[in-house]
């Protein structure tokens, strides 16, 4: 990771204090939303909606599953950036090693 900042100015998120503050506010909002489910009555139409904290749990689990499945998928589908281009060159020079398109 290069850090050749041409200026020494400290921006908002350069200070750990500010990042912590930002995250703390975020956690507090999450906590309020989580607890709100036990106090505010929702007009539900589906059975699983009745479960308290359904949306919060679903959102969290959905995103964790999304990322973990995507990581699994990456193992399957990831290729080198020149994956498609090597063949174009290979067809011309049959030398896949030294590739330099574009």
């Amino acid at each position: 990771m290069e850090n050749n900042s041409p200026d020494d100015k400290a921006y908002f998120f350069d200070k750990q204090k500010n990042i912590d503050l930002f995250l703390r506010v975020f956690y507090v909002i999450c906590a309020i939303l989580f607890v709100a489910d036990f106090f505010i009555h929702r007009h539900v139409s589906l059975t699983w909606e009745e479960m308290p904290t359904f949306y919060a749990s679903y959102g969290f689990i959905a995103c964790v599953v999304l990322v973990l499945v995507a990581k699994g998928l990456r193992k399957l589908v990831i290729r080198r950036e020149d994956y498609y281009e090597t063949d174009v060159v290979e067809a011309d020079t049959s030398d896949a090693g030294s590739r330099n398109v574009d």
């Binding site: 975020f26 956690y27 939303l33 989580f34 949306y55 919060a56 679903y58 995103c63």
Partner: peptide
Amino acid sequence: DTTHVLAQLQLLFFSALAFVWL
């Protein structure tokens, strides 16, 4: 309405929480 707004906020904030946690 309260139901809708609350549900959506919960869904979104906890998706964000998952991002932070991961």
